[in-house]
Amino acid sequence: MRAVPFIAAVALALATSLPALAKPTVGQPAPDFGVADSSGHTQTLSAYKGKTVVLEWNNPECPFVRKHYGSGNMQKLQASALAQGAIWLTVNSGAAGKQGHLDASSAKAYVAKVGGKESAYLLDADGTVGHLYDAKTTPQMAVIDAQGVLRYLGGIDSIASTDEADIGKATPYVAQALAELAAGKPVSVPTSEPYGCSVKYGS
């Protein structure tokens, strides 16, 4: 069964990202993908046309990810995005055997344990989606508008640290971008440098 979403992902990657290997660019169409989630469904970006979509790169064992889940900040952000009608896709691009890699059942257990509110948890162990978005860190965030245009790419907020105490002092770039999109305004901070652990891609 794993082969099916993989082939779909490769096909989609080839179909949508040629003139390809181009970097994901804010203001341009976000690259489409097809990848299995923890429930075995294939998740594509194109299926969510008409809705705002948030992508969140995740590694449950990364201290920067723990900062935002341990404090409840990530879950709060997820709940608020969903309440605004957005879709939230958490992506795990950690390769098998690397720290933080999850299979379907361990992903389900993780989401239940932390009280994650995401729409789906994507199993991207081959790194296809990660490379399409040039994701470098966990957490790293992308916000895509209802027309499928990439509107934000970067960090979750403005203070690079592992301290929960910094969350309240930081500018919450993702929350800000979602609020601005919901209000029909341009995103005032469309990129920021993501901070965190390296995404644990396979070689």
Partner: peptide
Amino acid sequence: TKWLVCREECIP
């Protein structure tokens, strides 16, 4: 002092 030390994984 605060640091982040990494191999492939990281420990603050």
